[in-house]
Design a protein around this nucleic acid. Structure first.
Length: 593
RNA sequence: GCGAGCGUAGCUCAGCCUGGUAGAGCGUCACCUUGCCAAGGUGAAUGUCGAGGGUUCGAAUCCCUUCGCUCGCUCCA
């Protein structure tokens, strides 16, 4: 029941998006193209506002974050270094009978007796199927059970009666080629690469393969040194980027939620490794003290920084109209973490089709810079004079203590990675030694906290959250449904509608146009003189316009004391107030900031 | 990629079973009207019935293929 309702709600939202010009299907006259969406006039304004607010919040209002705008196509080696070429393609295979899909490398290994068939014929019609098929059954089971499964298979191939051909059996151990549920032979594994490929240069051969970026983050890592060298920033600092990314999703679904072309808003915030923080400021701050809700402090290690960014991001969402009650924080469990992450928090929104991810805030350690250093052969280390000096001043026992703790952590990591217990201690010690030799000179690879948000997902969340059907009763006692988009004034595509009360009175129209021109320079304004005033208000309700300004006869001076005043109508409450035109701009600007 | 369902005007949908050549409501546009919350009047536009092919004298309707949407499987940095 709840599901039906949420589907209906989603359909209404999709329908409104099209009707009012928020979102269109891409390439519509050609039948559309799966996983691609266009923004119409209102959607475009909404998206611009959201990206602009993100940019302001993340960069302009801070001293410690700068911007980058990198290309979508980059050197293909980058995607080897980042791990996308390998981990972004999963071999898949299907059960030939039930069509169930498996990750080819994650099928439970099966042992038993395999029965192979070369095909089957239908004795009643003489029809034959030449396709070979195999079934694996436990060795203690009779061949009949294998034949039963094989019969199913050939029935699906169009035979009514099945006479199996060329049966032969062999024993098989630990095979991942058979469906654990029914023993049926799986299809050959097929690779699924989730990166979109293209060719650079006129010749489309393997030498010239390039990829459309599946995330904007890697460009930031790759340009990290250039930004550091030119921006007069020092660690800790961040690089922000907004831009398109592309993923060849298996199943684009849920309207714009999972698209193949989408826009990301990403920050890579580079911090000192905990050892450097400790040398500089003493023991790293504890997360539990809630200091991360304040301004950044020198004694913050990666965990506090991580919490800090989670909090910052939640505040951002609240600031544009997504209340905390519609959001969820999900701390990924250790076994769910991606290969690069130390900790990841997902910020989820309760969409009508389910609670889904809006943003992931990952603590990536120094994984990415290490990878690019390795693959490019160039150094990504920073020189940090403060750390060098601080380390030099540290007492020997403290140095030793920090060193030992780091060695222990590295040892655990190595063991977890599968390095043998005999080799791991020496390797951990060697790694720690190399690290501290560099640290003593002020050299290290920064660690990274990555808040990575999906712009299109956020737009969708804002639209879903804003959509409301309200029962309104007029003075005559008639009840009707008002559809209103309660978009936060900050993000609303149109900030104010300007209406002459009547359009057949030239004086009203002239005055209204004057008001429009006054406001236009400062915000997006929509002028409308068509139909009854109530209809114009309601039309703007569906567009999410927070304010309406109406010019009437009092504006013109019918009642002298009201001359040059207008009606300001509020979308959410439908309340009206009277105020002088001279105060209008100040009032509206305050409300939309 | 597989399975199921769906695709008719801008939107919501009827017509399809039982082929005869397309409709409703809302919306849109113009003019009039309208003295503050969508339903007044007059007039107008709009559909290759998702696309292609087949059967037929004739296809929105029956058959095949294809594309898109929804759900499930699967996947999801």
């Amino acid at each position: 029941m709840a599901e039906v309702k949420s589907n209906e709600l989603m359909e209404k939202i999709v329908s409104l998006c099209k009707r009012r010009g928020f979102v269109f299907q891409s390439s519509e006259p050609y039948g559309g193209i799966q996983g691609f969406w266009d923004y119409g006039p209102l959607g475009t304004e909404l998206k611009r506002n959201v990206k602009e607010l993100w940019w302001q919040t993340m960069t302009r209002f801070r001293d410690d974050v700068v911007g980058l705008d990198a290309t979508i196509i980059m050197h293909p080696q980058i995607w080897r270094a980042s791990g996308h070429v390998d981990t972004f393609s999963d071999p898949m295979c299907d059960c030939r009978i039930t069509k169930k899909r498996f990750r080819a490398d994650q099928v439970d290994p099966q042992s038993g007796t395999a029965y192979h068939y070369t095909g089957a014929v239908d004795p009643s019609t003489g029809k034959s199927v030449e396709e070979p098929f195999s079934v694996l059954i436990p060795s203690n089971k009779p061949p009949e059970s294998a034949r039963k499964v094989a019969t199913q298979f050939f029935v699906l191939r169009g035979l009514k009666e099945v006479q199996l051909q060329g049966e032969r059996s062999e024993s098989v151990a630990d095979s991942i080629r058979y469906n654990p549920d029914n023993g049926a032979l799986l299809t050959e594994p097929r690779p699924f690469n989730l990166m979109l490929k293209t060719y650079v240069g006129p010749v489309a051969d393997e030498e010239n393969v390039a990829y459309l970026r599946p995330e904007t983050a890697q460009a930031i890592f790759v340009q990290f040194k250039n930004v550091l060298d030119t921006s007069r920033q020092t660690v800790p600092f961040g690089i922000a980027q907004v831009g398109k990314a592309f993923r060849n999703e298996v199943t684009p679904r849920n309207f714009t939620f999972r698209s193949r072309e989408f826009e990301q808003m990403e920050l890579e915030f580079f911090i000192r490794p905990d050892e450097a923080v400790e040398a500089l400021a003493g023991p790293v701050a504890e997360v539990s003290l809630e200091g991360w809700k304040q301004e950044p402090q020198p004694n913050w290690g990666w965990e506090v920084w991580h919490k800090y960014w989670v909090e910052q991001r939640l505040r951002f969402y609240e600031g544009i109209g997504l209340s905390r009650s519609t959001l969820e924080e999900y701390w990924q469990k250790p076994d769910e973490l991606a290969h690069y992450a130390r900790a990841t928090v997902d910020i989820l929104y309760k969409f009508p089709f389910g609670t889904q991810e809006l943003e992931g805030i990952a603590a990536r350690g120094d994984f990415d810079l290490t990878q690019h250093q390795k693959h490019s052969g160039k150094s990504f280390e920073v020189f940090d004079e403060e750390v060098k000096n601080a380390w030099a001043k540290l007492e020997e026992p403290r140095k030793l203590e920090i060193h030992q703790r780091t060695t222990a952590v590295r040892l655990q990591a190595l063991l977890k990675k599968g390095v043998s217990a005999s080799e791991a201690p020496a390797q951990a010690e060697a790694e720690a030694k190399a690290f501290f030799e560099k640290l003593a000179k002020g050299h290290y690879l920064p660690h990274v906290i990555e808040p990575s948000a999906g712009a299109d997902r956020l737009i969708l969340a804002l639209i879903c959250s804003a959509y409301e059907e309200e029962q309104v009763t007029d003075e005559k006692g008639k009840t009707e449904t008002r559809v209103v988009m309660r978009l936060h004034p900050r993000v609303a595509p149109i900030k104010v509608g300007v209406f002459p009360l009547l359009k057949n009175r030239p004086e009203l129209v002239a005055k209204a146009l004057e008001v429009r021109d006054l406001l236009r320079a400062h915000m997006s304004v929509f002028y409308d003189d068509a139909g009854a005033i109530g209809r114009r208000y309601r039309r703007q309700d569906e567009a999410g316009t927070p304010f309406g300004v109406t010019i009437d006869f009092d504006t013109l001076g019918e009642k002298p004391e009201l001359k040059d005043t207008v009606t300001l109508r509020h979308r959410d409450s439908m309340k009206q107030e009277r105020l002088p035109i001279s105060e209008l701009l100040t009032r509206l600007l305050a409300a939309i900031r």
